[in-house]
Design a protein around this nucleic acid. Structure first.
Length: 216
DNA sequence: ATCCCGAGGG
DNA sequence: CCCTCTGGAT
């Protein structure tokens, strides 16, 4: 089978996006915080865990530390107790405190709006920066690539890359910029609801007609 | 046993 | 590119 042309792949990508939009008109970031600081903290905490568990600890965390200044002055062991159930709690506590201290030191406690400034902050990597820019500031600067996004885009034949950075580059080429943030949400929702990692329900999948990996 | 919206370091 | 750090649901 000849390699799919770039044009055909782009068309298939657009079709997949439209079908998912129909399927999940309400798709949004499930770490629901409008506040950029809190969204950043929640995203750092979401490593190797689910949004559900992050959303269980954040109320108490932000009750104690409502903003960058409070968290910057927190004792790490206190923070560890609050976020313990999300796993990796030692690293995560260090990272969110580092994030808060970076904001205080470099930006007067405010969250910056550029990829370069965000990524320069301790504890903030590419994914957290993308989540903040896309969901708190409405800026499509990149595509969040988590395990769902990577799995589904690989199954769909939209990328063959392994590292999140390279997968993201492929998706940024394949999808128009104003869809980047929503794209990640749609794929994550679909990954959780239908295209599960262990038992994908191809028979119930709206994308089965255009998915090279579909079993139906 | 496997999976989950990550960052930092080797 | 790889590894480590960690808990909890399935």
């Amino acid at each position: 089978m000849p390699r799919e042309s770039k044009k055909a792949k782009t068309a298939r990508a657009a079709e997949a996006f439209d079908l998912l939009t129909e399927e999940y008109p309400e798709a949004h970031c499930e770490l629901d915080f409008v506040d950029a600081f809190q969204l950043g903290v929640a995203t750092i905490l979401s490593a190797q865990t689910t949004d559900v568990r992050v959303n269980m600890v954040t109320p108490e965390l932000f009750r104690r530390y409502p903003g960058a200044e409070a968290l910057a002055n927190a004792a790490q062991e206190d923070v560890e107790q609050v976020v313990k159930s999300t796993g990796f709690f030692r690293n995560k506590s260090k990272n969110i405190i580092g994030f808060a201290r970076g904001l205080m030191a470099d930006h007067d406690g405010a969250v910056p709006k550029t990829m370069a400034e965000l990524s320069a902050l301790p504890g903030v990597g590419r994914k957290t920066a993308n989540v903040i820019l896309g969901n708190a500031f409405g800026l499509d600067e990149g595509v969040v690539v988590d395990t769902h996004v990577k799995r589904l885009t690989t199954l769909l034949g939209f990328t063959k890359e392994k590292t999140p950075e390279k997968v993201e580059r492929d998706l940024m080429v394949l999808f128009p910029r104003d869809r980047w943030t929503l794209l990640a949400h749609l794929l994550i929702w679909h990954g959780r609801r239908v295209c599960d990692a262990k038992k994908p329900r191809c028979e119930a999948c709206t994308l089965s007609g255009l998915c090279p990996s579909s079993r139906v």
